[in-house]
């Protein structure tokens, strides 16, 4: 798989805003950004209210995803270009989520909303209307989604990549530093995990680093290319960004995202938890 198959640049995007069969989708946790100005023609997906089950902690089911994409005017034949704020965290999460439900023609706008804004490219507040479609989703592809039991079983034998910040990994912080810190779960990380913060994969402007730089970063941190891999963070969105780097850019074959992540693992009774940098031994 080449980089062009999974990533598009801001320049390419601006030239293809009206290309037939291409749909731009902004994905965010806080959709006020979209409402204040979005890429012309882009529709929005609300990460919290549209991709998550409103009651249980899980995703909307296959029928729910079909209903959502149909209502957004996205068809099975469309190429979906995803972008968003927070360095594309939620867009990367949506990318993984689209793949989970079998939509192959999906790409990330490299650098997301941040690169677009820093470049001074156009945003507008036009109401975007797309004709409803009849979208058909596949069953979830569980080859890319990890659950808690397989995470516990992976200790010591798969690459466990903790992509949170070093202070979250060591147990000093319980959430990224733009969020309040008073959380229910225990602090720390899964034993044998390596810590490669998601941000290592990104340049300051939000674009992904080159494949050569990425290979060096994960290699230096102890990533073993011969092993299977599970990436996790706090709620599974930053680890989608790293899943993208490892699976889509570097082409590692067996890489799963653990969307339960630390908010689940750190609340489990009886599982092992390690504190500190993980490098003392």
């Amino acid at each position: 798989m080449s980089r062009e198959d999974v990533l598009v640049s801001a320049a390419w995007s601006e030239e293809n805003l009206n290309a037939p069969g291409v749909v731009f989708v902004e994905v965010d946790e806080d959709t006020s950004a979209y409402d204040g100005g979005h890429i012309p023609g882009a529709v929005k997906i609300d990460w919290r209210n549209e991709l998550q089950d409103p009651v249980r902690r899980d995703f909307v089911d296959r029928a729910g995803f079909e209903k959502l994409l149909s209502a957004k005017g996205i068809s099975n034949d469309d190429t979906v270009i995803l972008y968003g704020g927070n360095n594309n965290w939620f867009a990367a999460y949506a990318y993984w989520y689209f793949k989970l439900y079998g939509h192959d023609a999906v790409k990330l706008l490299d650098g997301g909303r941040k690169k677009w804004e820093l470049d001074g490219r156009p945003l507008d507040k036009e109401q975007v209307e797309r004709a409803e479609t009849t979208y058909t989703a596949q069953e979830q592809d569980l080859a890319i989604r990890a659950f808690r039991d397989e995470v516990v079983d992976a200790i010591g034998n798969k690459n466990l990549v903790d992509v949170r910040s070093p202070d979250e990994f060591s147990g000093k912080l319980l959430a990224p530093a733009h969020l309040p810190q008073e959380q229910a779960q225990r602090a720390g990380h899964i034993p044998s995990a390596i810590n490669v913060p998601w941000s290592k994969a990104a340049n300051e402007d939000g674009t992904f680093k080159s494949n050569e730089e990425l290979a060096e970063i994960y290699g230096e941190a102890g990533f073993d290319g011969s092993r299977k891999t599970i990436a996790y963070c706090r709620i599974g969105e930053r680890s989608s960004h790293t899943w993208f780097a490892l699976h889509e850019l570097l082409g590692h074959e067996d890489v799963k995202n653990y969307d339960g992540s630390w908010t689940e693992y750190g609340s489990l009774v009886g599982v092992p938890v390690e504190l500190g940098s993980g490098k003392e031994a």
Binding site: S165, D167, H178
Partner: peptide, 14 residues
């Protein structure tokens, strides 16, 4: 875009 960097210059939040 406001980025918080730790004492070693490592990115922490934005």
């Amino acid at each position: 875009f406001v980025r918080l960097l730790d004492a070693s210059g490592e990115f922490t939040a934005e």
